[in-house]
């Protein structure tokens, strides 16, 4: 099963091994498939091996892409689960702004548009 949570390389060791921090756990992995990875990089780990370096800048770009998409419809009826999370469709246009420092959290910027 593909674990998609990036691990943080804390130390690169000899023989293409590295120590990583993943969700607070420390593991050793092999960098046989990522010889250019270095301490400080974020990597995807699968079966004890790093398989790719994950780029935070690319993640931000993807979020910005979505935020800049136009939507033609009026907000449809909001599912209950969204309401429980405090999502208010009238304020939807406030969510449409560039990502702020990659945190990804939604912030209000002022009065809703008409």
């Amino acid at each position: 099963m593909c674990l998609a949570v990036p691990a943080h390389i804390t130390e690169k060791k000899s023989d293409q091994k590295a120590t990583v921090d993943i969700l607070g756990l420390t593991r050793d992995i092999s960098l046989d498939l990522l010889p250019d990875a270095k301490a400080g990089d974020w990597v995807l780990v699968h079966a004890g091996f790093g398989i790719e370096i994950v780029d935070e800048a690319d993640a931000l770009e993807t979020i910005e892409l979505i935020e800049q998409m136009p939507v033609g419809f009026e907000p449809t009826e909001v599912p209950e689960a969204f309401q429980e999370l405090g999502y208010e469709p009238e304020k939807r246009s406030d969510y449409i702004k560039p990502a702020d420092s990659g945190k990804g959290s939604v912030e209000e910027v002022g009065a809703p548009h008409e």
Binding site: V71, R92, Y95, G104
Partner: peptide
């Protein structure tokens, strides 16, 4: 590595509308 934006219900709802 903050992936929370990829679970953001507002972004999900927008994509569902699209």
């Amino acid at each position: 590595f903050d992936l929370s934006a990829f679970r953001d219900p507002a972004l999900a709802h927008k994509l569902i509308e699209r």
